[in-house]
Design a protein around this nucleic acid. Structure first.
Lengths: 308, 308
DNA sequence: ACGATATAGTTGATGATGTCAACTATATCG
DNA sequence: CGATATAGTTGACATCATCAACTATATCGT
């Protein structure tokens, strides 16, 4: 409850903060002979090439009446010309004149400079983190995380640490596992990375527009010729229920089969319910279970196998 | 250069995006009998308890003239009363009336609901990431990372992974070190975490308002009774040059001395110039050097010692 | 103490913005 | 074909934004 209140306060704080930032950026526009609305309308027309009044109104959140008058003014300044629509003669076609194109380019340049001014005081790492944060906010708030490209790819520098970080935090939040777990998976990833290339191994990161949505890897099972082990399957909570886990497991199974493995095993805990469904879906069967106390919790470990 | 252009475009994209978000939130205000400016002014007065016209103007980025007239209107509506200032009689004191307080509470509630509406579709992890991203953006763009509390504290769940992640990325960017390095430090952190509590060891995270600015740890040196080893000193680029590295090393030295260690050693690479200065400043002396090829680079390893 | 200078606030003027409602012309659909 | 919806225009009016002029008070250096 209190968390909720704090969260809302933090969001409002950010809104006030960013309102000011946007205000600062827009102040720069006042050195032109155009008002802010005019600039926004010109930018929108320029971006779309040609558009209509009602589109502008809805896109920029302005009143149709206001758009109408504003366009008149821009026509008078020779920045814009309006022709009746071809197919629908209620709708008029709004385009930039040659002069309007120039203005558009100029305004765009000024906006670039203003945005540049935000980035300028930051070093490379700061810029990168700023942009990642912005991208994340847009993704979270646009509320449609389903569309967009999801790619399975190898891990990059720093991502073993990232995967360790995320899983440690998640399983601590969800199941209370302690730092013993974090140390264990740090070692598991280190072992993966330093293992010899021959019996084949592979790790996949599910990459959603630069953000890590999940991961898994396959290594040769210790001391069992011809057997591959599936390890460290995880999907970010925000990306669950979209089949990413199944995609990762399928990819791993295909890899193991192609690499010549004849069996596949994995170890998991029975509290990881949704993971179990994925393993079942991929054809794994439960071999045996074993109670143990690890990561500060009483667990029921499960060994699953799959014949390839 | 192209990166730069992309970055600017991304910032502008976010600005447009968030302009719309703010617009949506503000739309809710129109169900009240107050205009947006009035609501903002009331909110600002309510937040501050009492204020002056010029403060409002500068805080909200409005014209003094406009604030003046707006306040007149609010006085007419019995939301606000104005008394001449006590110490400075140019400055007037602007306060909310009882009715104004009510309005303030009501508007505040509406804003809370609007902000709540942003959070509502998100799950816990999504909310957390949204808020972290917002905090990060505020910190990066407010451009004053110097003020604020810096604390040295133990690590929390997930932070071993985070430290691995950050250092792998940083040293890759700065020196081209490959994932061999990431695997090594993942193992080093895992070893730290699973080491026995007796001979004493400790890890500190430099925490700046919830963000990790740097870290270091002390462990007993392998096979050398009475000797402590300083390991994994690092400071985030954005926080460098503020003495955080020295603070971490000092803390580590004090800890080692109090824990009864008589010597302290560390291993570093000569390319890490600023770290070297910190070690020298703390009294470490260079014992010997040794060339080696690690992490995909030709390195010159240095062993430093300190008598406690 | 005094004058130059700065600051807080008010007032006037003017154009732009935001909002409603009324109106025309065209499109769409049963 | 008529009911209904949509695109755009126009009028009316209150608020917003901006500039400049003006008064009253404070501050600072000399």
């Amino acid at each position: 409850m209190n968390d909720q209140t704090n969260d809302v306060a933090a969001v409002r704080r950010f809104n006030r903060f960013y309102t000011r930032i946007i205000g600062l950026l827009e102040d720069g526009m006042h050195r032109t002979r155009f008002t802010l609305s005019e600039a926004r309308v010109l930018h929108e027309i320029g971006k779309r090439g040609a558009t209509s009044g009602s589109e502008l109104a809805s896109e920029l959140g302005m009143d149709r009446a206001q758009v109408s008058r504003l366009l008149m003014r821009l026509v008078g300044q020779d920045q814009v010309y309006i022709t009746p629509g071809n197919d629908d003669r209620r709708r008029s076609r709004v385009c930039l004149t040659a002069e309007g194109e120039e203005t558009y380019a100029h305004l765009s340049l000024m906006s670039d400079e203003a945005a540049s001014g935000l980035l300028e005081p930051l070093d490379r790492s700061g810029r990168h983190r700023l942009l990642q944060a912005m991208k994340l906010i847009m993704r979270l708030l646009s509320g449609s995380p389903e569309k967009g490209p999801l790619a399975l790819r190898p891990h990059r520098i720093g991502e073993l640490g990232w995967l360790t970080h995320r899983q440690a935090v998640l399983y601590n939040q969800e199941y209370g596992w302690n730092s013993e777990f974090e140390a264990l998976i740090a070692r598991i990833y280190a072992d993966y990375e330093t293992a010899p290339a021959d019996p084949p191994r592979s790790l996949w990161v599910a990459d959603f527009d630069g953000e890590i949505a999940g991961s898994v890897f396959v290594v040769p099972a210790a001391g069992e010729e011809g057997t591959a082990q599936l390890r460290m399957l995880y999907v970010e909570p925000g990306f669950r229920g979209k089949g990413i886990g199944a995609m990762l497991v399928d990819q791993a199974v295909v890899f193991a089969r192609n690499a010549g493995y004849r069996h596949m095993i994995l170890w998991t805990q029975d509290c990881l319910v949704s993971a179990r469904r994925i393993y079942q879906g991929a054809g794994f069967v439960l071999a045996h279970e074993e109670k143990h106390h690890s990561f500060g919790a009483d667990l029921n470990g499960q060994y699953w196998t799959l014949e390839l």
